[in-house]
Design a protein around this nucleic acid. Structure first.
Length: 570
RNA sequence: CGGGAAGUGGCGCAGCCUGGUAGCGCACCUGCUUUGGGAGCAGGGGGUCGUGGGUUCAAAUCCCGCCUUCCCGACCA
């Protein structure tokens, strides 16, 4: 391909709204353009990279025996009603009506459709199956952001396993885990496999593949000593015990005029340090007002509350709701004496005595509260979010918190969808059995953005050969010079013949512009054909990642370049 | 949904406070010169100033509504 014939609109400056490095550079280098918020066009260079990422995913999926499908992006609402997700999902799903006023949806994932197809199986002999597709998903995200990292329309590889029993599911799960590690290795993405929340769809094992990056949207707790790694939606830490003083026989009310926060109560004469207070969060779980109580200096992780309560929808209560049910405003709330309202208690409060908490009366608090004695019907669970430096739950060494991009997610789904879609096979004993499913996803565009995010410098992108839009560029510095043009063309043809994906920069531009462009676009190897070296019968081979340049005799240049490209293929 | 910022040519921005009919850099087109790190000179093309309404002799500029985009948070199979 010739650069002069290509549509590669590079920009000297990034659009003002682009903030993340991948966003800025993918736009500047002419890979993507925004159509509107959360929807991007892939330009020719962008599509080349996207397709290579997809091909790597495809080849590793095929290698574990998965079969590729292509399912509709638009689904009948009925299918989603059968699984219960029509009501469960809410505003995140694009919904529309066809000309007959029938409800249809744009698929945000494909459990329903694959399970619908799986209903055609009738014998255990047909299992196991792993099915996948690389398809556009639609999600009406509340806040698309950071270019390709979070969008409303995107390609995802989603696969689903069907097995007769848990042992089969375990095998499919492990096969995916291994395949994912190979995929990210080939993408040159440094991923951490971390324990994760399964979200509202349930399931037990759930592992996310995370790429550390400040523009990510998830926090991972990581122990550098023992390798414990978990999303903070699920991470746990050791909580050192606190010596409580002897308690009172019963809680005691005391006035706290103007005190509204944990910190203020800690400063207040007669108050208590934060770790000796009970924090009371008022939440609405599936429409029901509930309390979540934690140690004063601990933060509630709402995903943990969602997961352990089983609620589908969760939100903070409004001050009005709180006043109506508890009779006080935030700042003076407590769980003592509360009845008829579910109370979720964080494990760190177990056994605590002589605590201080709100009295459900503005400007009053209680001291001398024994958690288990004074608060009725506690539901104990892990609710607190771990903080950096806390001792690892496995080995006690300090945890660190790392911001990450979620590049992949695998989890064991269970039988929810197979049951809903009536998937049933007869086992060897002639008994009807519902296959168990697993669900596994990788966002193609997000993976591409994650690579861009981790492979760039101040000059531009820096693709690994495995997914670079081209392996090499032949830069003819002055195409009007016949010797340069002839040599460049010949090298370009020979590189193509040798199987190197090559673009020939034959544009009649100043050398500086062309060199800067090849660096911005991030092509791994550049063969520079210019008067200076050519006078000695040489060209230059420059590796983008290192900037290392070597002089090569014209006759050997193509072979040497092809060899270096081949050495970095994966 | 809460908080913040911003919409002026393809991109980056100025002009707005103090109203007078739109400007700069880059990019683009033509010509000449130039050719190893984003060239020089000369000439040229391109903008409903997000949108609707209001005030005014006159609105990019002042007032009101709406739309859109970005950032932080909430949310996120």
């Amino acid at each position: 391909m010739r650069w002069s014939d290509s549509f590669i609109p590079t920009l000297r400056e990034a659009p003002a709204e682009a903030d993340a490095a991948s966003h800025r550079l993918l736009v500047r280098a002419g890979f993507i353009r925004q159509l509107h918020s959360g929807h991007y066009s892939l330009l020719p260079l962008g599509l080349r990279v996207h397709a290579k990422v997809a091909d790597i995913v495809r080849s590793e999926m095929d290698a574990i025996g998965a079969q590729e499908f292509l399912l509709p992006a638009m689904h009948p609402a009925d299918l989603w009603r059968r699984s219960g997700r029509w009501d469960l999902v809410g505003a995140e799903m694009f919904r529309l009506q066809d000309r007959n006023d029938a409800d249809v949806v744009l698929g945000m994932t494909h459990e329903e459709v694959f399970a619908f197809l799986a209903a055609e199986m009738s014998s255990y002999r047909e299992l196991p199956q792993i099915w996948y597709q690389i398809q556009t998903k639609f999600r009406d995200e509340p806040r698309p952001r950071s270019g390709l990292l979070r969008v409303r329309e995107f390609m995802m590889k989603d696969s689903y396993s069907f097995d007769l029993d848990e042992a089969g599911l375990d095998a499919a799960f492990d096969a995916h885990w291994e395949a994912y590690l190979r995929i990210f290795e080939r993408l040159d993405l440094n991923v951490m496999a971390v324990q994760a929340s399964s979200g509202a769809m349930g399931g037990d094992a759930s592992v996310e593949f995370m790429v550390a990056s400040p523009v990510g949207e998830d926090d991972v707790a990581r122990c550098t000593a023992c390798g414990y790694r978990a999303n903070t939606e699920r991470a746990r830490a050791e909580v050192p015990p606190i010596d409580d003083p002897p308690s009172l026989d019963a809680p005691e009310r005391f006035p706290t005029p103007g005190v509204r926060t944990i910190d203020e109560l800690a400063e207040f004469p007669g108050g208590a340090p934060a770790d000796r207070q009970i924090k009371t969060m008022v939440m609405v779980l599936d429409g029901e007002l509930s309390l979540a109580i934690l140690r004063g200096d601990h933060q509630l992780n709402t995903q943990k509350l969602t997961d352990s309560s089983g609620a589908a929808e969760i939100r903070p209560a409004t001050p009005e709701e709180t006043m109506a049910q508890l009779g006080a405003n935030p700042g003076s709330l407590g769980a003592v004496g509360v009845s008829g309202i579910p109370i979720f208690a964080d494990e760190a409060l177990r056994g605590r005595r002589a605590m201080t908490t709100g009295a459900n009366d503005d400007d009053w608090h209680l001291r001398g509260v024994d958690v288990e004695r004074d608060i009725a019907d506690l539901r104990w669970m892990d609710l607190r979010e771990v903080a950096a430096g806390e001792p690892c739950i496995e080995c006690g060494e300090p945890l660190e918190i790392v911001r990450c991009i979620e590049a992949g997610h695998i989890f064991k789904l269970g039988r929810r969808y197979s049951e809903a879609m009536g998937v049933s096979v007869l086992d060897a004993d002639g008994q009807a059995r519902t296959p168990i499913m697993g669900s596994y996803g990788i966002g193609v565009g997000r993976a591409m953005a994650a690579v861009a995010e981790t492979h760039h410098d101040d000059k531009g992108l820096c693709w690994p050969v495995s997914i670079a839009p081209f392996d090499a560029v032949v830069a003819i510095l002055d195409p009007s010079d016949e010797a340069q043009a002839r040599t460049g063309e010949a090298l370009y043809r020979e590189l193509c013949d040798r199987g190197v994906e090559c673009i020939c920069d034959d544009r009649p531009l100043r050398p500086g512009v062309k060199l800067a462009d090849t660096e911005l676009v991030g092509i791994p190897f550049r063969v520079t054909v210019g008067a200076r070296s050519l006078a000695q019968g040489n060209v230059e081979l420059t590796e983008r990642a290192t900037g290392d340049t070597t002089l090569l005799a014209v006759e050997q240049a193509a072979a040497e370049t092809a060899a270096q490209v081949a050495a970095q293929r994966s």
